Amino acid sequence: MQLPTSPLLSVVVAVYNGEAFLDQFFSCLVAQNIDSMEVIIVNDGSTDGSMGIVEKWREQLPQMQVLEQENQGVSAARNTGLAVATGQYLSFPDIDDYFKPGMYQRLLDMALENTLDVVTCNGNYVWENDKKPSRPIFPLDKLQSTGVMTGPAWLKQALDSRKFLHVTWLNLYRHDFIRQHNFHFEPGLRHQDIPWTTEVLLTAERVQYTSEQFYDYYIHSASVSHKPDTDDTLIRSARHYMKILQMLDAINQRYPEKVSRIPACHWQIAKEGLGIIHTFDNMKDEQKKAMIIREFFERGIWKLIWKSAKSPRLRWRLGRRYFRLKRYI
């Protein structure tokens, strides 16, 4: 009796109230025209008509399974899908984006030919109603196609470009590699792709990047990350980034030898730290601002950012903010 072979690709998809985007998303999946592909839909507590649309597409995607869970966020949904995935390679697309026919086949061909742990392509930023002209996610003059290289070498090159975006949806990951290191997404954390990508690349041995632009990242008003901020959403964002900085620091300490050759691993902590301080600047309620700034110092985040700022320019940018922040304590 012949044992069933595992699919080449598992596509793990978190769905939460995505009825406006799912038809386009499934059209993109079907257009990939890959027979050996399982699709794992994780319904993260949707309350709209998302599941009706999913059912409508079942016939065209026979290797699709649907998992249900209470709303826990995209990280938990990805972990749920990852736990049951059987494919040789994994992908984690967002449902509100567009990916072009041939994307997964091209990345699979590269991955299988070179036994890659991670394979990455380029994409475009696309604005709703053409508010801005679209542009490449990785500028073509800053990051060009590579041969096979180690993960740390690619991470250094990518971070040194100062134009690198930590995302999962431009990548395929070798499943055995992810399983071997027991990688998972941090539950309840927004922008969890930052620590995920950093640690995955620090451990990967074989990585390759193609500057071909297969993926359109859609910037629109319905996206949680692009809605207007209030003081409360700014506080939540600051807390998420404080957690991210602590995770990045822990990662740096786990891989000291590799990180010693990638100064930008420290730079990214200082850069994201400046982003947190910028968040404080945008808050209107002085009491709330004082509360979150106190938390920022009490959690040791300022000390971590200052320690990570190795260049005189970064230290100068931080130093001029220090006394303005201290006024609130």
Rank of each mutant, 00 (worst) to 15 (best):
R313S: 13
Q180K: 10
W302V: 10
S36D: 12
Y255H: 15
W267H: 12
D229G: 11
P228K: 06
Y322V: 05
M247I: 13
V118S: 12
D249K: 13
G300F: 00
L245G: 14
D117P: 01
I40K: 06
Y125P: 04
N114H: 13
N252D: 13
S46E: 05
Y255N: 13
L61N: 11
N171G: 03
F21C: 12
M110G: 13
M242C: 13
N124H: 09
I95E: 08
P62E: 09
R315A: 14
M64C: 05
F323N: 07
D216S: 15
N252L: 05
G81Y: 00
I276E: 02
Q246Y: 02
F21S: 15
F280Q: 06
Q287Y: 04
E59H: 14
N129F: 06
K156L: 07
D232P: 03
I251T: 14
V118W: 04
H266W: 06
F214W: 00
H184N: 11
M37P: 04
T230I: 00
Q72S: 12
E186Y: 01
W169H: 04
S10E: 01
T198M: 02
M37R: 04
G52H: 13
L325F: 00
P256D: 07
R327P: 05
L8D: 15
V119D: 08
P256L: 10
L140C: 06
F214R: 03
W57A: 11
R179S: 14
L67T: 10
L245V: 07
Q213M: 09
Q32M: 03
S50V: 11
I329E: 11
R239C: 01
Q157V: 04
R327E: 13
Y16L: 15
R190E: 01
I178C: 08
K289W: 00
S145F: 03
L116N: 07
W169I: 00
P7H: 08
V126H: 06
G188L: 01
E59T: 14
R254K: 12
I329M: 10
N17P: 06
R327D: 09
E113R: 13
S75N: 09
I34S: 10
W306G: 14
L245K: 03
D160C: 05
F164I: 03
K284C: 01
L165G: 12
K284D: 03
I276T: 09
V11R: 09
V224P: 08
R179N: 15
I219Y: 02
Q63C: 05
N282S: 07
L201N: 08
R58K: 15
K258I: 06
D117F: 04
R315F: 02
P7A: 11
Q63T: 07
T279V: 02
V224M: 04
L108W: 02
Q32D: 06
T80P: 01
R313L: 10
H220K: 11
F183A: 14
I251C: 12
R294D: 14
D193N: 03
N33Q: 10
R321D: 04
P133I: 02
T230D: 01
D97T: 05
D130A: 13
